[in-house]
C-alpha cells in the first residue's frame, strides 16, 4: 500500500470517528453525580423512550478504583456508551477495566458497543436473553428513538458472573448478587467498601416499574430480602438514589397493589381494556410514566390473572 493510500485511510478513519464523538455529546448530556466516595451515577430521564431523551431513561453508574474503573450498565446506545466513557475520562485517568450488565433490557445494555474492548460480565440468564432477543430489542429502540441509535447492535456479554461471588478492584470489594423477578436474571452489586447497593431494576423510585418479563412473586421476595440488607446508599435502576430503602418499599407496594387490583378486576369480570382505563389511586398516578406503564402492565399480567378467574373448563 502506498503512503498516499495509507494516509488516505487514516484520514477516512479520522472522519469516521470524529462525527461519532461529536454526535455523542450532541445527543447525550452526561453529568455523573457523586453519590459516595469514588462512586458516580448518571441519572436517566424519568420518561418513556422518546426521540428527545434518545433512550437515556435508565441510571448508569461507575466506581473509580486504583485498579481501574468499573462500569455498571452501559445505557441505550453506542453513542450513549461513548459519551459515558468520555465523561468518565473527564473525572479520572484510570481506564475502564470492567463492565457489569444488570439485566437484558435495552435501556441498560445497548451501550455495550462502546465497551467492546473491556470484559463485559452478566448473569447467565442475561447473556442468554441478550443472545435470544437482543437484536429485536435494538430494532425496537431504533423505531422509538431514531438517529441516536445509529451504530448500535446487541453486544453479548463475554464474561459470566457467578452468583454470590466477590470481585475486588483496588480497595473496592463488590458482592455480585444474583436475583430475579424483574427479569429472569437481575444482577445487584453491593460495594462493601462504600456501602453502595446498585439494585438495577429490582428497584424503581418515583417511576412506575416495568413488567414485560416480570415474575411478580419472585420480584417481591427479592425486594423483601433486600430490605433486610445493610447499605449506605441505594441506587435504583430508575429514579433518584436514597440513603434508605424507599425505592424497595415503593416498588414492592406498587407490585402488590397491581396484583391485587388485577385479581379483583378479573373476579369482577372486567375486560382488559376496561382495566386499562380505570383511574389510578393518587399514590400510583403520580409516579413518572403513568398511566402508560400501568397500561403496559395490563397487557403483560392481566391475561393470566383473567384466565385464572374463569372456571377450568365449562361443560
Amino acid at each position: 500500500m502506498s503512503r498516499g493510500a495509507l494516509s488516505g485511510c487514516l484520514l477516512l478513519a479520522g472522519l469516521l470517528v470524529m462525527p461519532g464523538a461529536m454526535a455523542a455529546s450532541r445527543y447525550y448530556d452526561i453529568e455523573p453525580v457523586e453519590v459516595a466516595a469514588d462512586t458516580y451515577v448518571v441519572f436517566g430521564a424519568q420518561e418513556n423512550f422518546n426521540d428527545a431523551n434518545h433512550g437515556a431513561i435508565a441510571n448508569t453508574g461507575f466506581i473509580v478504583t486504583d485498579e481501574g474503573v468499573v462500569v455498571i450498565d452501559t445505557g441505550p446506545s453506542r453513542l450513549y456508551g461513548q459519551a459515558l466513557r468520555e465523561a468518565i475520562g473527564r473525572i479520572t485517568e484510570q481506564p475502564v477495566v470492567q463492565v457489569y450488565i444488570s439485566h437484558a433490557h435495552p435501556d441498560h445494555f445497548l451501550g455495550n458497543n462502546a465497551f467492546d474492548d473491556v470484559p463485559i460480565a452478566a448473569l447467565p440468564g442475561t447473556i442468554d436473553a441478550v443472545r435470544a432477543v437482543g437484536a429485536d430489542l435494538a430494532g425496537n429502540l431504533y423505531n422509538l428513538v431514531g438517529a441516536a441509535m445509529r451504530g448500535t447492535s446487541a453486544v453479548v456479554p463475554d464474561q459470566t458472573v457467578e452468583a454470590g461471588t466477590t470481585a475486588t478492584f483496588g480497595d473496592h470489594r463488590l458482592q455480585l448478587l444474583a436475583a430475579s423477578g424483574h427479569t429472569a436474571a437481575d444482577l445487584m452489586i453491593m460495594d462493601t467498601t462504600t456501602g453502595v447497593l446498585f439494585a438495577g431494576d429490582i428497584a424503581f423510585h418515583d417511576r412506575a416499574p416495568t413488567t414485560p418479563n416480570a415474575d411478580i412473586d419472585a420480584w417481591r421476595a427479592v425486594l423483601a430480602q433486600t430490605r433486610e440488607r445493610e447499605f449506605a446508599v441505594l441506587v435504583p435502576g430508575h429514579g433518584p438514589s436514597t440513603p434508605d430503602d424507599a425505592p424497595l418499599s415503593q416498588t414492592g407496594d406498587y407490585l402488590a397493589w397491581l396484583v391485587d387490583r388485577f385479581t379483583q378486576d378479573a373476579n369482577d369480570g372486567m375486560s382488559a381494556a376496561e382495566v386499562m382505563f380505570q383511574p389510578l389511586p393518587e399514590r400510583w398516578a403520580r409516579l413518572a410514566v403513568q398511566p402508560g406503564e400501568y397500561r403496559r402492565s395490563v397487557s403483560h399480567l392481566y391475561p393470566a390473572i383473567e384466565q385464572s378467574a374463569l372456571p377450568e373448563r365449562t361443560e
Binding site: 414485560p212 375486560s271 381494556a273 376496561e274 397500561r295 395490563v298 397487557s299
Partner: peptide
C-alpha cells in the same frame, strides 16, 4: 400503543 401486537385489548 400496542404493547402486544398479537393481543391488543379493545372495549
Amino acid at each position: 400503543y400496542a404493547e402486544d401486537s398479537l393481543a391488543t385489548p379493545v372495549q
